[in-house]
């Protein structure tokens, strides 16, 4: 199977503090890969490196075939990114946001216009067209952000807590969008605090204190830890060893 993300012995230090302590994992093309961990476990640090925004201290990191040390610009062109905290510009309208992101990736006006129409129809945004993004319900905003993160047809999409605070029905619709893209061969790299969503991933990893504490399919992990659900495993691994020292 084709490899989308390859991480070998990744270490990231800030001064004496080891944020990522020798991480090893691979993500295959078309896989939905769940990235779990307590706040401060080192998830954001790792995601920043995988997105080409930060350089590793040591180790090998390849994303979409590009090297994180020397080809971070190439990585950025070939990935999409959205987060719960920041995804779209609040004081731009839906269309302006799409045009802005399309422009950043150097897409033609004709293509951007076509994509704009496509998203508005697909996500049923007709009634919101002229509104500023800040006036959109969070669920709609997040669905739009996901589409926009996909506008330049990246091979990997990074989703950082995309569903935090979203209502339970929209949260599930969001996962329908994720599945649809994964079926087209897109690789999805997603972090979440909803443990039911961990079960929707092909494989998950649980980070604890900068290290990977568990990695596998949800079913295999439940079997290995004799747990009924991922939440139990998470609590088992993260409780006790969790520190608040950073």
């Amino acid at each position: 199977m084709e490899t989308a993300v390859r991480v070998v012995n990744l270490v990231k230090k800030f001064g004496n503090f080891v944020a990522n302590d020798n991480l090893n994992f691979e993500v295959s093309k078309g896989e939905v890969f769940g990235f779990l961990g307590a706040n401060g476990a080192g998830k954001t640090t790792a995601i920043k490196i995988l997105c080409g925004l930060s350089k590793p201290t040591s180790g090998t990191v390849q994303v979409a075939g590009f090297d994180a040390y020397h080809q971070s610009e190439k990585i950025k062109q070939n990935i999409g990114y959205m987060s719960q905290k920041f995804s779209l510009y609040d004081d731009l309208t839906i269309k302006e946001n799409i045009r802005f992101y399309g422009g950043i990736y150097g897409l033609s006006s004709k293509f951007i216009k076509q994509k704009t129409d496509e998203y508005i129809t697909q996500l049923q945004l007709e009634q919101y067209q002229k509104r500023f993004v800040k006036d959109l319900p969070l669920g709609i905003k997040q669905k739009l952000a996901f589409s926009v993160a996909n506008i330049h047809n990246p091979s990997i999409i990074f989703l950082d807590e995309p569903t935090s605070g979203v209502d339970p029905i929209t949260r599930r619709q969001f996962w329908d969008l994720i599945y649809a893209e994964a079926h087209k061969g897109k690789t999805i790299f997603v972090s979440t605090h909803y443990m039911d969503e961990a079960e929707y991933c092909d494989r998950i990893t649980i980070m604890v204190d900068g290290k990977i504490a568990a990695l596998g399919t949800p079913n295999n992990l439940k079997r290995d830890y004799k747990a009924n659900n991922i939440s139990e495993i998470f609590l088992l691994l993260a409780r006790g060893i969790k520190s608040e020292n950073h």
């Binding site: 307590a38 605070g165 609590l235 409780r239 969790k242």
Partner: peptide, 13 residues
């Protein structure tokens, strides 16, 4: 008001 939004399972507990 939403003291636990975006907070991990352990800290929520």
């Amino acid at each position: 008001d939403e003291p636990t939004t975006g907070v991990d399972v352990v800290s929520r507990a």
